[in-house]
Design a protein around this nucleic acid. Sequence first.
RNA 1: GCCCCCGUAGCUCAGAGGACAGAGCAGGAGCCUUCUAAGCUCUUGGCCGGAGGUUCGAAUCCUCCCGGGGGUACCA
Length: 591
Amino acid sequence: MGLMSLLSELSVLVGEAFAAEGLDPAHGEVVVSQRPELAQFQCNGAMAAARVVGAPPRELAGKVASRLGAHPHLAAVDIAGPGFINLTISDDWLAAVTQRAVDDPRLGVPASSEPSTVLVDYGGPNVAKAMHVGHLRATIIGDSLARLFSFLGHKVIRDPHFGDWGLQMGLVMAEIERRRPELAYFVPEFTGPFPEEPPVTLEDLQEIYPVAAARAETDPAWAERARLMTVELQQGRPGYVALWQQMKRVSEESQRADFARLGVEFDLWYGESDVADRMEPLVRRLLEQGVAEESRGAVIIRVDQPGEKRELPPLILETSLGGYLYSTSDLATIEMRVDDLGVDLALYVVDARQSDHFEQLFRAARVAGIAPPEVRLEHIKFGTMNGKDGKPFKTRAGGVVSLSDLIDLIETAASARLAEAEIAEGYPEAERKAIARQVGVAALKFGDLINNRASDYIFDLDRFSSFEGKTGPYLQYGAVRIRSIQRRAAGRDLPTGPILPPVQAADRELMLELARLPEIMGRAAELRAPNHLAEYAFVLASAWNRFYDHCHILDEADPSRQASWLSLAHLTLRALTLLLDLLGIEVPERM
RNA sequence: GCCCCCGUAGCUCAGAGGACAGAGCAGGAGCCUUCUAAGCUCUUGGCCGGAGGUUCGAAUCCUCCCGGGGGUACCA
């Protein structure tokens, strides 16, 4: 039996008391108290249980409480209100629990007893487009979830799933053709060799794509041309494939650089085109099986089952021109992920606006038998990042803000803040730059991840770069303060020692906060909600900062108390560093 | 029209059916001869969009309404 968390142990304890009364031990679930001035923990089960047996809740709570009263781990057991059982644990036990975390490389967080293969599909860059603010959320939420599931013992596969095979390719190619029809790529019978150098730079593509997208709106004939070019690319026309490969290379270069600045790495670098070979056989098979059908010249799968509450249009697999869509590649990608990668759980970290698409896609995957029932497919949806005006975040000129510009903005703000701080003055220039980068990225990521992912949120550079209060840098600052103490303690050869029972509110509360780590991680994973990690990291850092203020470790006269506090500081740093790592945030040595 | 998401303090946002609804910022009052003040302490501020319902108990679940956003067959 592995380590149990404090809350699970308490729940077992109270559950046994319920069982002794002939009731379901599940009623014994213990949670952190909502009324800290009354108790540390509470159990609400007596009210529900009382209903089952038809007894007065307070009376039942009293019976359970009297069975718990003498337990050596508990310092106080009270009944309050309609039948709350309030619990306060003994300081001795709290110290023992904290010591257990100190001795555990996993800080008391158990690894999953049923490890799965979890694929996280996030980032979603498109060929021909540099990443912009819209990619920020997908990237950092997905990255955080990937890190969390990995820490919890799952096999995680990170895949950005490039958009590289759809109509956007035809649109861009058609626009390049319009401007430079003489290029070899467009000569019908020519099969190469084609020029080594791409005919377009990333800047060109940046300019071309929006123009092409707009032209498709106003010029139907031209749009048709783009569709046709898409189909011909998918069918392997040499000139288009050559051009496509060059555009892809140019785009990927900048995207990898953006991901690198955010400290995000992937295990696979797959895109839609990587399942190109599967699409045609898949569509044919589904037609043969009668799962797919022809309708209005296209091949579709109807996804409305009898009894389905949500009506949805069919999923289109093949256009009337014979082209494939992202629906097709998404379905083929599910097949690949299930058959070749053995995925148990796939998390699609994609904008909430695509929820209909994923509902259609997942239903289609079920009816087609591509995803067996035991494979879980989930759309991890998130809201839009808006500007101060509540509308999608734009530059002053009204353009889309590129991801690298956004990172520049926040790093510049961090540099400015650093320049104001007298303590940073003596640092070498290189270190100051590194700190500005780490602080900037921390502010950006934490500012995003602290929000519930489902809601839209407002990005306000001034607020994000104040670096005070509930921000990424606040957490880094807390951790850095511990490092500073550690350096000084090492300089004076001060040892760490066994955790002693707390002597005041500040160290007791820090220990209590640390004991919540396992439940927080479990909940964050279950809800796929990094904001629970972020919120807890802030609460823990606050508890540390209070402790820092009230308990002066280096001045402590009692050597064993000092050694205990040093251990507590070490543990806090490990917990903070771990949490920040799960949020994708680095901790500087000093700042 | 239909479907999905969101309306919580001046602002930005949390909130696991439970006890008087929380945080950060902003506003007010304090704390640097002591481990980094990017910090700490205290404080002002809310009929949780509205109306019903379920429940011992609802910001949380259900229904309707109002307001905002998004999506709705060959874009991603």
